[in-house]
Simulated scan of single mutants.
Amino acid sequence: MTRTRTALLSVLVLLAGLLSLQLTGPAPRATAAPAAFTHPGVLVSRAQLDHARSKAQAGQQPWKAAYDSMMASSYASLSRTAKPRAVVECGSSSNPNYGCTDERQDAIAAYTDALAWYFTRDSRYAKKSIEIMDAWSATITDHTNSNAPLQSGWSGATWPRAAEIIKYTYDGGWPNAGRFATMLRDVYLPEVINGAATKNGNWELVMTEAAIGISVFIEDRAAYDKAVSTFLARVPAYVYLTGDGDLPEPPAGSSIDTSAEIIKYWQGQSTFTDGLAQETCRDFGHTGWGLASIADVAETSRIQGQDLYPKIRERLRYALGFHTSYENGTAVPSWLCGGSVKKGLGRVTEVGFNALHNRLGIAMTNTQEYTEAHRPSGTDNYFNAWTTLTHADNPY
């Protein structure tokens, strides 16, 4: 009898231990990728495209002016000839520049033609977009030199936007779509998927934007999850909120962790306030690139049904308001960047402003003034294009 009780007690203890382990053990890692990807679904959805198209066709502003600007640009030229290279070599500040500009511009042209196809339903634009993408997918094998990850980010953020629209809305066929997917997987994704922890934040943000866009097109859930994880760690290390404490969050995966190292990383800025960015005291131009990528990633995630805006909303809101206030003429205080900032944010606010103000109803006076004064957006930087056309007052 005693032996039976002892055996029973042992079984109960074992079961309790297993139950305790099950209840208190580490929870399974949440995934960010959707069970099924939505297409087209990189930066713009079909509903967004339909809304913008209807507004432009009706001659309403600002969509009509944005559409006219796009169609009049060299990027929409049907006589454009792609300039692919097997190896794109980009050093610091794109010096040397062996194919760097050509690659970025061809990617923007492919996206421009894809938009032109969708708005006009003129198959010549779809065929031109395919021609450009095919030229590069048949040629490129590598990116080299110090700016290879950044260059891959700039171009890799743009290519999937074009590819998504063409593959999923053009019924004329794209025989080499698989080869293009292989190019993104083998040439671009390895350069961007591991981030750039110690570089200025605009690097890692656009690299992450590229990784997420590529992941959607090639339907790689593991890469998507990894890119989202990198993104959610980088945003707090790029935009400061007072709730972070006396110092900003250090970049994840780096050795930048002491007060002196963090202040140096933030361009020598030692006073922190809501919306200040890691590159504010470098210049507003690079900061604008970082903020654009933050909004772009969140926009793609929302289309994919895994909305990241709630996680980054306050940082993006304050960062846009902070920088546009100085662009709008607010005097620079002595504590900020030694009393002088290098303005030039660029036309990078449209996506974030639409998401936060128009969809979520957040009052953003400074950002609204700046955004509306700088319409229509064109191709102001290396990866942003036509966001007034696609995202101005777009409820979808």
Rank of each mutant, 00 (worst) to 15 (best):
Y67G: 01
K83L: 14
T101M: 12
L115R: 04
G59L: 07
P26I: 06
C90W: 09
A56D: 06
T112Y: 05
A114M: 10
P28S: 14
D50H: 02
R85I: 02
G91S: 07
G17D: 11
S73A: 11
A65I: 00
A33G: 10
P84Y: 14
S73R: 08
H39S: 05
A27V: 10
G91K: 06
A82C: 14
A35C: 00
S79G: 15
Y67H: 11
V44D: 03
Y75N: 09
C100R: 03
S93G: 05
G17F: 13
R80G: 08
D102Y: 12
A33E: 10
P62C: 02
A82H: 13
L23V: 10
S45L: 03
A47V: 00
S94Y: 14
V44N: 03
G25I: 07
C100L: 06
R53V: 01
P34V: 08
A109M: 11
Q57Y: 01
K55V: 00
M71E: 05
N97M: 06
S92H: 08
K55Q: 15
L115M: 07
L18N: 06
L43C: 01
G25H: 11
A66H: 03
A65S: 14
R46K: 13
D113G: 05
E103Q: 14
G41T: 05
P26S: 14
R29Y: 04
Y111G: 03
R80A: 11
A56Y: 01
T38V: 15
L23Y: 13
Q22F: 13
L19W: 14
C90P: 01
A36P: 01
T31F: 03
N95W: 03
R80C: 07
S73Y: 08
R46Q: 11
V42S: 10
A66E: 01
Y111C: 03
S73F: 05
N95L: 08
G25M: 11
P96L: 07
L19N: 08
N97G: 06
A65V: 00
L21W: 15
A76V: 05
D113E: 13
A114D: 09
Y111A: 06
A30V: 08
Y98S: 13
V42A: 09
L49P: 04
A52G: 00
T38H: 14
Q48A: 07
A52V: 00
S45Y: 03
P34K: 12
Y67E: 10
S73D: 09
A65R: 07
S45A: 04
S77T: 10
Q105S: 14
P96H: 12
V42M: 09
H39M: 02
S74E: 15
H51R: 06
G41W: 10
Q22E: 12
N95V: 11
G59F: 06
S74C: 01
A109P: 11
T24Y: 15
Q48Y: 00
A52D: 00
A72T: 00
L115K: 02
T81N: 15
R80E: 06
T24E: 15
A58T: 04
Y111T: 00
M71S: 03
S74Y: 13
